[in-house]
Design a protein around this nucleic acid. Structure first.
Lengths: 218, 218
DNA sequence: CCAAGATGTGAACCTCCATTCACTTTCAAG
DNA sequence: CTTGAAAGTGAATGGAGGTTCACATCTTGG
């Protein structure tokens, strides 16, 4: 026995590993997951392709871990807000604004996480990501329904609607042109948030309430 | 000069072409666009792979045409309803119900058109498809806003929200489990439609109105 | 039936990338 | 300094699947 891993080495390994993930993340932020080719990752991380496989068993494993790492941060933020003790309505507003707001900045990344055409393995991760969103929304909605802040709707379905509406309207194929988002991101975010709130039967503050004569239909 | 195409031949060619498209459509309905492999299409259509290339210049061309063919039918239906002369509110309800209802039946196909991970060329077609949806919705919303049926919201953004919410909630990664849709598709559809209508400030008929105390928040 | 062009064929080819592996370099312990 | 193991390397491999093309077959006018 003439070799055993030292702390110094372990640290270097961890650094390399992190470097590989960082390289992959840059590629994603630049061109989406489609742009993650092992040879490119290796080049950007300054290692050989073979080395990648010392750290990740496959490209899929690498991408999955990357997806998780990035999405965990987002979900953490939302979850923190969601479990606060303010009234459900306020928590909902905050969560929606945070979600939408963060998607507008970091748009390319949000697109990759939420909307970009993805291959099947990763779609699984994304489904999990989105489902978690939906659960966060649903949780708040249920709270609100329980104490009467929100009318009795199907929380899970409404949550799914929200989790679909925001990405699509912000970063998906229907997103406004970039310059529109760059010029006035807040307005777009507010409009979307308003839609979602109204969808679950909450109206935004007074000034926006005019003209709501609320015809009944069909 | 000893050969010129005859009507009979032209007809046969058209038939073969249609057969190829039909074969591809079946594959899509069964396993999404990912399942469209040229060799499989050929087998199912009863021709050789080489023959496919007499009719379509590439796989991409074949898939694009297929996507268009299928989506054109859907859009046509919606467009017909949208341009009717009923009040905007009613047209909106009908369009939403049609859209959502058709997506529930033909779920696999709807999934392929709306939500399935897709490669970039086809994503382009899908973007067009979705954008057209959004335009149809937006058109109705604008009508409604103009004559006061609908409060003054940003029609394009609301339309994008709707166009995102429905597929996600119905056939996307957040869709209810299949058995739930099979057992009670109408309830799910109605719930989603209700969300979208409320989002643009329209309430459904009386019975569903109780408990809407409508707290104001933030 | 023949000629000439259109159609049909499917095995071979090609490209793209993830993955591997025989080899080199680095490292820690004796 | 030596040695055995770990870590790094990158050219070669392999599989998947779209595309081609030399050849066969069919169609029509003469």
């Amino acid at each position: 026995m003439a070799y055993r891993q030292t702390d110094k080495v372990a640290a270097r390994l961890a650094e390399t590993r992190a470097g590989i993930l960082a390289a992959a993340r840059e590629l994603v932020a630049g061109g989406g997951f489609a742009a993650v080719q092992m040879s490119e990752v290796a080049k950007k991380a300054g290692v050989a392709t073979g080395t990648l496989y010392r750290y990740f068993s496959s490209k899929e494993a690498l991408c999955r871990e990357l997806f998780r790492e990035v999405s965990a941060r987002e979900m953490g933020m939302l979850a923190t807000i969601a479990t606060g003790d303010e009234p459900a309505g306020e928590r909902l507003v905050k969560v929606l604004r945070t979600f939408a707001g963060r998607a507008v900045k970091g748009r390319r990344l949000a697109y990759a996480l939420l909307a970009e055409p993805l291959d099947v393995n990763l779609a699984e991760e994304r489904a999990f990501f989105r489902r978690t969103h939906a659960e966060i929304f649903a949780r708040i909605l249920e709270d609100g329904i329980e104490n009467g802040e929100i009318p009795p709707i199907d929380a899970r379905i409404a949550a799914a609607c929200i989790a679909g509406a925001i990405p699509t309207a912000l970063v998906g194929p229907l997103a406004p042109q970039s310059h529109e988002l760059d010029n006035n991101p807040d307005r777009v975010v507010e409009e979307i948030v308003k839609f979602c709130l109204a969808g679950v039967g909450i109206a935004l503050a007074a000034g926006q309430e005019r003209n709501r004569e609320r015809r009944t239909v069909a």
